[in-house]
């Protein structure tokens, strides 16, 4: 168990400062229970949402995977239910000891816009419900770790991060979108869907907000303009389509991800 402790101390140090996408720290009295906050992926119904949850580490960590439990209503994962992070013959992929809590956080962000398909612990709320929950999520405060979703993460940056250490991840992200696109084409005859493709200058870019207090109001204006909601949405969607054609889509949230 001391090996787990040693490892978790390192992870706690590594994740000590919030990023704009995620933050996680152990509870003060229990290194094996963490609380985390993640930002909803920008080009999704979870845009503008910040979601809070628990991570429970098994005593064998990192030999066994962590469990994740969402605490903020989000419309994708049931609140208070364990989400398992691996295994089974259904998925060839499985937990690797060289993964970390950060890997799990990145995965959960990436997994939010995927279909629930009626699975246990999954929810298939409508886009409207999800967007409304995303908005409300900012009001969430966690009693246990005393954090508020408005201030839990750094405000989203206006540009994609040009830091040199990200270039490798960026390269990877491009390979990923290429792979995913070819898969799509082969399955759909090239029909466009809605990839999670936040272009750097997307119309609804979170970067236009300049403080962590503002997003909610901005968001309300954009999502629910009086009397013009549907039209606004469609306009945004078209803007996104255009944006997508201009830029290949490495998702902004993935750029800091180095532990693959």
């Amino acid at each position: 168990r001391w090996l787990s402790v040693k490892r978790l101390m390192k992870e706690a140090a590594e994740l000590c400062d919030p990023t704009e996408h995620y933050h996680a720290q152990p509870l003060e009295d229990n290194l094996f229970e963490w609380h985390f906050s993640v930002r909803g992926p920008p080009d999704s119904d979870f845009d503008g949402g910040v979601y809070h949850g628990r991570i429970v580490l098994p005593p064998e960590y990192p030999m066994k995977p962590p469990s994740i439990i969402l605490l903020t209503p989000n419309g994708r994962f049931e609140v208070g239910k364990k989400i398992c992070l691996s295994i089974s013959g259904h998925h060839p992929e499985t937990w690797q000891p060289s993964w970390s809590i950060r890997t799990a956080l990145i995965a959960i962000i990436g997994f939010m816009p995927t279909k629930g398909e009626g699975a246990i612990g999954s929810l298939d709320y409508t886009p409207e419900e999800r967007r409304s929950l995303a908005k409300k999520s900012q009001d969430f405060r966690c009693e246990a770790c005393e954090c508020s979703m408005r201030t839990a993460l750094l405000p989203p940056s206006p540009d994609r991060d040009p830091r040199p250490e990200d270039s490798e991840a960026q390269e990877l992200a491009q390979q990923i979108s290429f792979k995913a696109d070819s898969r799509q084409a082969s399955e759909s005859g090239g029909a466009t869907s809605d990839p999670p493709a936040p272009g750097p200058a997307e119309g609804s870019s979170p970067g236009e907000r300049d403080s962590s207090e503002d997003p909610l109001e901005d968001h309300e204006d954009q999502v629910d303009p009086p009397g013009g909601r549907e039209g606004g949405e469609r306009e945004r969607e078209r803007e996104r389509e255009r944006e997508r054609e201009r830029s290949s889509p490495p998702p902004g949230w993935s750029l800091n991800h180095k532990s693959f």
Partner: peptide, 10 residues
Amino acid sequence: FKGQLLLGVN
């Protein structure tokens, strides 16, 4: 691809 981490909620 990136994390090879699938949330097996299914």
